[in-house]
Every structure is written in C-alpha cells, then in structure tokens.
C-alpha cells in the first residue's frame, strides 16, 4: 500500500482504537501493575490478602458458575433437540425474550419472586406447600444467583445450540428415525455428538460471563460472606478504598477467564 493510504488507515483507526486502549487496554494492564504495589512498594502482600480473605469466595464463584453452566447446557441440549425435531416457533420465540432483558432487571425480578416474602412463596403457601411463618429464602443465596444466571443464559444457549443443531443435515435424522430412533436417541446419538464444538464454544463464553457477573449478585446477594468475586472487588474499592487487593483479585479473575479462553481456542483449533 502507498504511504498516503497507510496514513489514511491510521487516521480512520485512531479514534476508536484510542478509546478502547485508553479505557480498557491500559486499565487492564494497570490491574497487574497495581496489584503488585502495596504502599508504593513492590510486594506480594495483596495476593497474600486475596488468599487469606477471598479463597473461599473464589471457590464459591467457581461453584456458582459451574453449576449454572451445567444446568444451562443440559436444559439447552434437550430443549433444542426437541425444538429441532418437532418445530415449535412460539417456544423458540419465548426463549429469545431473556436476551433483551438486562441482568439488573432479572436480578430485581427474581428478588421480588424468590424472596422469603416474595410472590412465589405467597403462591405456594396458598396451596399449603410453604409454611407462612417460616418461609424459605431462595433469593439471597447461591441458588437465587444461579436461578438468575440460568434464566438469562438459557436464552443465549438456546440461540447458539439450536443454530448448530439446525446445521446438522436432516438426512441423518431421517435415517435414524427409519431405524426407529426416539427423540431422545436422535438427540443423544446424532445432534449432540455433531455439535460438540459449538457447545464447547458457547459453554466457554457463558462460563466467563458467569464468573464476571456483577449486577445479579449485587441485586440478590445477601451482603454477607461468601460473596461472588466481582462483589468483593466492588466492596474493596467502595468501602475500603483498597485498590491493591481489589486489583489482585481482578488479576485472579482474569486468569480464571483466560484458562477458559485457552480451552476454547484449543477446541476451535481441533475443529471437532
């Protein structure tokens, strides 16, 4: 390319690139830098504090993300199998709705629904399933967070998994049906094995977003330990102004996300 063209490219690329570098790339790198400083001295004390104060929170976060991911994938695999074999457009449309409902709203809706004196317990107590004097609390705990994450991510999973199921050729399914395969067998033996790669990609994508979920645990968390990692980062900044430990915890969360990203790249390269 001529020099003038190169210059034109540079001018065009500069404004968007500058914003992302300034407000994401540099702050991202400075997380690592700030996490190694304690009172203006190089030190690993921040990481020691993360280990001492937050190791159970890290496990708690991993547990919620892992549980929600497995639940979403299992539901999506069979729901999409059903939708692929017996076409049902209204159901497909309904499961797109959560895509357009922001996480904060999901958090609030579940808070109203699942709180001890929430709508669900009120409904269940009418038919005597719940003791009104000691209503169970589903919100304000890990199950409440998991329900929100599953509800919201299911829409995404249905979209991605159904897309990959649709790309499986109909003749395979017809052949299986001719040999008398049930819907379940068609899913287990044909659709699922042929969509493994895209399932892994969708899973990796959802797992990082679940690890990083912030507004949902903020809305329906209990305010007491254990907390999800993003809440710890937020409280560490807001209440203690401790940027060192908050950034060390941030770096830990990047590493967790990167582990998943590595797996995701390997799956894509294998191309299975």
């Amino acid at each position: 390319m001529r020099l003038s063209h190169r210059l034109a490219c540079l001018v065009i690329a500069l404004p968007p690139l500058a914003i992302v570098v300034w407000l994401f790339f540099i702050p991202f790198l400075s997380s690592a830098y700030l996490s190694l400083l304690r009172e203006d001295q190089w030190s690993l004390r921040n990481y020691y504090l993360v280990w001492r104060l937050y190791r159970y929170d890290i496990l708690y976060t991993l547990w919620i993300a892992f549980f929600s991911l497995v639940a979403v994938l299992v539901i999506a695999v069979f729901l999409c199998g059903y939708l692929r074999i017996h076409i049902n457009r209204p159901v497909e449309f309904l499961f797109k709705i959560p895509l357009f409902i922001p996480f904060v709203v999901v958090g609030h809706a579940m808070r109203v629904l699942l709180a001890p004196k929430g709508t669900l317990n009120a409904a269940l107590s009418q038919i005597g399933l719940v003791n009104m004097n000691d209503p169970p609390s589903i919100a304000f705990g890990w199950i409440g967070i998991a329900v929100c994450l599953i509800w919201k991510n299911l829409a995404l999973a249905v979209l991605l998994v159904l897309g990959s199921y649709r790309s499986v050729d109909e003749t395979f399914l017809e052949a299986a049906r001719n040999f008398g395969a049930s819907t379940f067998q068609q899913i287990k033996d044909i659709l699922l094995p042929m969509s493994k790669a895209s399932l892994a990609v969708a899973g990796a994508f959802m797992f990082t977003s679940m690890l990083a979920s912030f507004s949902v645990p903020l809305m329906i968390g209990s305010g007491e330990p254990p907390q999800m990692v993003m809440i710890d980062v937020f409280y560490r900044i807001n209440y203690q102004m401790d940027y060192g430990t908050a950034n060390a915890l941030g770096v830990v969360s990047y590493l967790l996300a990167m582990g998943v990203a590595g797996y995701y790249l390997r799956t894509i390269q294998k191309g299975t």
Partner: peptide
C-alpha cells in the same frame, strides 16, 4: 484489542478506567 473487553471481566478493569 477490540476482542479484549468481551473476553475478560469488565468490573475490575473499569475500576481503573474510572481512576483514569
């Protein structure tokens, strides 16, 4: 560079962006 904000948790990064 345009993929990074999708791949990593946003909150810990935005904490430092706020300082900037």
């Amino acid at each position: 560079i345009f993929l990074l904000p999708q791949a990593f948790p946003q909150l810990p990064v935005f904490v430092n962006s706020t300082t900037l």
